[in-house]
Design a protein around this nucleic acid. Structure first.
Lengths: 366, 366
DNA sequence: TTGAAAGCGCTAACAC
DNA sequence: GTGTTAGCGCTTTCAA
């Protein structure tokens, strides 16, 4: 691509104007304001342009002048490809793409940082605004975005002052899941969560690591569990929590194995995502002697299509709507920074039931 | 967003230089060529920048100067969201995103045309190159891309002179499917294909419409069927072909219904995509009295994950690899225009079998 | 090391 | 309806 990158444009607006013996304004108008010149002159301009191989006004030069890029930048966790494998991210992308299309804006997927901070792709992105989707709190690219003087919308992230935000109430939703599980009578419960920080962690994690998680969403969901468990009289630090590094079924399965090896008596595993929950189901299936929900209750979070299909007990959240809302906030830039909190819904499926040795009597309810 | 779009930058490279009492070159070097000035001066520049709220060199101005945008444009059929709903497009996108990420380039999804040709988003895209994925031959956006003086790669499209291309041999692959079905003994076969043109068509279509299809891929696949059927002694124009407008399971199901209503004696339905084939399976299931493969053989094309899972007979094509190759062609711009044809593989699954009243005897083989 | 000068290609006021 | 003037903000020779 190198050579073509530096290729001279075959013709410019100025050279076209010279060829035609008119001013540059006239040529510019031929493209941008057809009503500002005679149809006949316009045709002559366009014809000559074609003859000279002039492809129309250079987009970059035009952007510099008009201060509009006609595109929004999207910042995602990790690899770009991550977004295409994660059903949740995919829904978000779909919604955002819809908004962009309606607004006639392009959607620029910004590649992750690689190398020195100064070379960050965020600094090179020619965009009118950014959407930041679920990146760690301490992500340097997020910091770079916030420094750029363009409107920004964050999604599934903590509040940033002066920036629009769209989210769900992760914490409350997780409280709902916990209550559901506890009300069924479960007392020996394990938890599977997604990556909390940059480092690859294996096995059980401590409450302090939970609190210090760099992922806002995971932190909030775990906090919801902690609150509900504590309120029910359970000792949260004694609840086994396993962190998965990759957000894949395979990692969820490995996490489930760790959890079940740690305490074979567990009657329920609560997951902070559906993908992980699918991994738990796979592990239960592999073990053979663990039937769901008879022997093990499994819950997820997100409401991805696959979860819906198999009847996973989970929290449905409107992923597509989230993306669409992010776009809307960006394009209908209102007065001050706003936060839109979307509704979620507990969806009780076929993967949760009372434990076999349920002893619901000594649970007094909420 | 309007206000912020026109917002003045809080500071520019020039104002920073003035404030510091140095030249603009020095400030520019502080960002782009750290080795060209003392570490101490550089620090002073960067500190002052932070204090003044200077976010670093403006990406658009820099692009104008360097003639590099640091991004690749992607042109897709129809709606942007299509990319995230269609499993094939998704795989392609994933592969392309990988290439872009490795090359440190952004990936700009160009919104579809809406309105006058002059307002086409292709003309506004600040990119160093384009990838065009499976758009109709007569797409005005494609024409606009080809006029832009940047390298371009087309994928699943006809050859365009002077432009790199990545594809599979759709026709040969479909000949393979047809042979498979014919060798099983099927003679009453129906065909389900994707959209051939811009207009919404319903029901059976004529051979002439097939030949005049604006979708290269569909044209090639149908041609493969025609060739194989003809070679086997069947009369192609008598083979019912139904066109689906939307590439969805629902449309595939409706198409299957049309086909089965037209000829209840069909023993096989060949589809030009897996998604459509899944629709056929759904319709067979709905009818109850049509079992697959006992009563009906169904084949797809693409090898999407869902097809793999249920054991659909189909043609596997490397979608992700296709995307990655497109990126590679763009970034390692070689000598002349090149075409890369990727290999495909017939995958015989559980949805194809001999017809119940098979009369294989009078078929002499190939 | 640093600075001065030149211009990337275009559009928006404003005058004619 | 058309032209003139003045930059948008930056990088890059080249000279000091």
């Amino acid at each position: 691509m190198a050579r073509s990158l530096n290729a001279r444009r075959p013709a410019t607006l100025a050279s076209l104007a010279a060829e035609l013996g008119v001013s540059r304004t006239t040529v510019s108008n031929a493209y941008n304001r057809p009503d500002q010149l005679s149809a006949e002159l316009r045709k002559r301009v366009l014809d000559t342009a074609r003859r000279l191989g002039y492809p129309g006004p250079d987009p970059v030069a035009r952007s510099l002048r008009t201060r509009q890029a006609g595109a929004v930048g999207l910042l995602l966790t990790d690899a770009l490809a991550f977004a295409f494998e994660d059903p949740g991210a995919l829904g978000f992308l779909e919604g955002l793409a819809q908004s962009c299309q309606e607004a006639g804006r392009g959607l620029l997927l910004v590649p992750p940082a690689a190398g020195p901070a100064e070379a960050n792709a965020v600094h090179r992105a020619a965009v009118d605004g950014f959407v930041v989707y679920s990146v760690p709190d301490d992500d340097p690219q997020l910091a770079a975005v916030l420094r750029r003087p363009v409107p920004t919308v964050v999604c599934d992230q903590p509040v940033v002052s002066g920036v629009d935000r769209v989210a769900i109430d992760d914490r409350a939703a997780m409280v709902g899941v916990a209550k559901h599980v506890l009300e069924l009578g479960h007392r020996r419960v394990g938890v599977l969560c997604m990556r909390l920080g940059r480092e690859r962690t294996v096995g059980l994690i401590s409450p302090s690591r939970q609190r210090e998680a760099h992922s806002y969403v995971q932190r909030a969901r775990l906090a919801g569990l902690r609150d509900a468990f504590t309120e029910a009289g359970l000792v949260w630090p004694s609840v086994p929590v396993v962190e998965c590094f990759d957000h894949t079924l395979a990692d969820g399965q490995a996490g489930a194995a760790a959890l079940l090896d740690h305490d074979p008596q567990l009657t329920a595993i609560i997951c902070t995502s559906d993908v992980l929950a699918l991994g738990v189901l796979a592990e239960a299936d592999r073990r053979g002697d663990v039937r769901v929900p008879e022997d093990l209750t499994v819950t997820g979070f997100d409401g991805i299509p696959e979860a819906e299909r198999i009847g996973l007990t989970t929290v449905r959240q409107p992923m597509v709507e989230k993306g669409r809302t992010a776009g809307r906030l960006l394009f209908d830039h209102g007065d001050g920074p706003r936060t839109v909190v979307l509704a979620t819904e507990l969806s009780v499926g076929r993967t949760s039931a009372a434990p076999r040795t349920a002893n619901v009597e000594w649970f007094s309810g909420w």
